[in-house]
Design a protein around this nucleic acid. Sequence first.
DNA 1: GAAATTTACTGGCATATGCCACTATATTTA
DNA 2: TAAATATAGTGGCATATGCCAGTAAATTTC
Lengths: 159, 159
Amino acid sequence: MADNNTPDGAWNYCSNSALKRASRQLGQLYEDVLAPSGLKITQYTLLTQIKLGRETPLKLLAEAMVMDLSALGHTLKPLQRDGLVEMVADEHDRRVKRVRLTQKGNQLWSDTNGLWREAQARFDAAFGKDASENLRRTMDLIASPGFAAAFSGTRQDQD
Amino acid sequence: MADNNTPDGAWNYCSNSALKRASRQLGQLYEDVLAPSGLKITQYTLLTQIKLGRETPLKLLAEAMVMDLSALGHTLKPLQRDGLVEMVADEHDRRVKRVRLTQKGNQLWSDTNGLWREAQARFDAAFGKDASENLRRTMDLIASPGFAAAFSGTRQDQD
DNA sequence: GAAATTTACTGGCATATGCCACTATATTTA
DNA sequence: TAAATATAGTGGCATATGCCAGTAAATTTC
């Protein structure tokens, strides 16, 4: 029987592509579980982040998502269109827009939460609970500004 | 000084979103290094896979990339347009198309290889050589068909 | 305080990815 | 072998993401 534990003939020497392949597959797996909700896993993640953020400015939301500000704007479009999130102007700085869930958004989030838990539980079961937590920590490290600085050779701890 | 090792206020309990954030950041980092070549890191990865595949059928290439077949087709478009890759019909099965690098594609790949090595070296330096290899192995596991089966609760080793 | 600069967002354009419907070919069934 | 089914790709549509060039509003300079 063929080796079923490695993507068929994939070029496994690039850390970036390894991460991308894993990310595509995992996204697919979570997506399938969330399907009944009508939300993509990306959207669910975004809603969660917005919910936790309590009217976070777009800029900060983008940073938390490790995403380009304009990309975030685009990604929010369908959610706004569907009435799940809405923008509110900042009272002090008129350049700033804050995002929050609408009533409908909150409702859908709640309805979808169980599905996300299910997906996460399956992941933990297949990957191992501890390994899972460990993985998230590792991913957070790679996603951190500090790592980007280290990668780019920028020194930082001294301002 | 604020904690600089965690994306600001990110919801870190979802393995999928953790992976996505890391993937976005890492992609960005590699991208910056590859920039002089004019190739996106995704494209470089694809060219490499095609180069290694020696006229692989699209289907197999898609599997190796853990990517949807049609998505692969779309992603190849710009590369075909720019004359980096070309399709050749399979001699025995007329449904099958095989992809290969053109002379130009091979040239650009070679010219870009050094940049990729540089990016990979920076990653290894920032993340740790051993940890890096370890990470790739972990990512390969998550990207494997076996993991998908385990996640989905499908039994497989018994046919 | 007016001019220069920085900051937060938007809109247009391009690539990355996935789903679905459809076409052309093979392969399997009856 | 004709019909049913499976396989490999394509094209259209939708979301995901990033870059760049504005625009508007705040902050810093002189």
